[in-house]
Simulated assay, not measured.
Amino acid sequence: MKAEECTLYHGGLKGAETVFGELAEKYNLNEVIFTFEGHRLHRDRNAVSLTEEDLQRGDISMEIASRMMNRTYYETEKIRRVLQAIFHMVNKGHQVFVIGTILDDNSVKGGTGWAVELAKLFNRPLHVYDQNRQGWFSWKDESWQAEERPKIAFDTYVGSGTRYLSDEGKEAIELLYADSFGE
């Protein structure tokens, strides 16, 4: 697959998403950042501001989101908008890569977990680098299975994850790009 035919979708936040974006730029991939009015980005290359109508297409009840992620999300406009924007990322990207922490209930810590739950729901190939266990895991047969090093295998993909990126998490993203597109 040619790098220039691939598109990364992400939310432009500091940490994992910024590193995914910087490496997409380095390897000459397309990059689209979904945002909305009032959302502060750390990286804003090719930002697409979602309209109110766009955001509504990604709307979900906070009760359902809370249930799917086994935690409580309170009804705040900012959280709702973030979850709506994540819907657009996962809806556009065929393969999903996340840097974070897999919890005992099989969800992923933080807001990043919503991208993971949507990837499961949409049956997207899903890969999580767990910073605590320092390894990649894929969601297969309703469970997390350890894997060596995944590759970007589709022309659209999502890069998401924690704002608190470890050195090992950064290296995992760097190796993902190197393995997928060469040095």
Results as ranks from 00 to 15, higher is better:
residue 116 V to E: 09
residue 78 K to C: 03
residue 119 A to K: 05
residue 151 K to W: 09
residue 175 L to Q: 12
residue 105 D to W: 05
residue 135 G to V: 06
residue 134 Q to K: 09
residue 138 S to N: 15
residue 96 V to P: 00
residue 122 F to Q: 12
residue 83 L to F: 02
residue 98 V to D: 11
residue 171 E to H: 12
residue 170 K to N: 13
residue 112 T to F: 07
residue 141 D to T: 06
residue 179 D to R: 11
residue 63 E to Y: 00
residue 79 I to W: 08
residue 126 L to T: 02
residue 69 M to T: 08
residue 155 D to W: 00
residue 69 M to S: 12
residue 83 L to N: 04
residue 81 R to M: 11
residue 147 E to F: 02
residue 181 F to W: 09
residue 120 K to Y: 07
residue 93 G to M: 06
residue 90 V to A: 03
residue 93 G to N: 01
residue 101 T to Q: 14
residue 113 G to H: 08
residue 141 D to N: 15
residue 75 E to W: 05
residue 130 D to G: 06
residue 70 N to A: 05
residue 164 Y to F: 13
residue 62 M to L: 08
residue 160 S to M: 15
residue 119 A to C: 04
residue 78 K to R: 03
residue 164 Y to S: 09
residue 73 Y to I: 08
residue 79 I to H: 02
residue 73 Y to R: 07
residue 146 A to W: 08
residue 114 W to K: 01
residue 98 V to E: 10
residue 160 S to F: 13
residue 141 D to L: 12
residue 168 E to K: 15
residue 112 T to N: 04
residue 65 A to H: 12
residue 137 F to S: 07
residue 85 A to D: 07
residue 84 Q to R: 04
residue 172 A to H: 13
residue 102 I to E: 03
residue 127 H to K: 11
residue 72 T to G: 04
residue 131 Q to M: 15
residue 138 S to L: 15
residue 164 Y to H: 06
residue 141 D to K: 10
residue 128 V to A: 04
residue 149 R to T: 07
residue 100 G to W: 07
residue 158 V to L: 11
residue 71 R to Y: 02
residue 152 I to K: 09
residue 156 T to D: 14
residue 62 M to T: 04
residue 96 V to I: 05
residue 117 E to V: 07
residue 104 D to R: 04
residue 166 S to G: 07
residue 126 L to S: 06
residue 67 R to W: 01
residue 115 A to K: 07
residue 151 K to G: 07
residue 91 N to W: 05
residue 130 D to L: 05
residue 173 I to D: 13
residue 123 N to K: 04
residue 133 R to Y: 06
residue 118 L to S: 06
residue 160 S to I: 08
residue 105 D to N: 03
residue 115 A to C: 11
residue 73 Y to C: 08
residue 83 L to G: 00
residue 179 D to V: 05
residue 82 V to W: 00
residue 180 S to T: 10
residue 75 E to D: 07
residue 133 R to W: 06
residue 77 E to S: 03
residue 123 N to V: 04
residue 146 A to L: 10
residue 87 F to P: 00
residue 161 G to L: 15
residue 104 D to G: 05
residue 182 G to D: 13
residue 83 L to A: 02
residue 91 N to H: 07
residue 117 E to G: 03
residue 140 K to F: 01
residue 117 E to W: 05
residue 83 L to R: 00
residue 66 S to G: 05
residue 62 M to A: 01
residue 107 S to N: 10
residue 90 V to F: 00
residue 81 R to A: 06
residue 169 G to P: 03
residue 164 Y to P: 00
residue 130 D to W: 05
residue 177 Y to W: 13
residue 100 G to D: 08
residue 82 V to N: 01
residue 162 T to P: 04
residue 120 K to P: 01
residue 174 E to H: 10
residue 182 G to C: 15
residue 125 P to S: 12
residue 154 F to P: 03
residue 63 E to M: 06
residue 88 H to F: 09
residue 70 N to W: 04
residue 131 Q to G: 12
residue 91 N to G: 01
residue 152 I to Q: 14
residue 127 H to L: 14
residue 135 G to T: 10
residue 106 N to I: 12
residue 141 D to Y: 09
residue 143 S to P: 05
residue 180 S to R: 14
residue 124 R to Q: 13
residue 127 H to A: 14
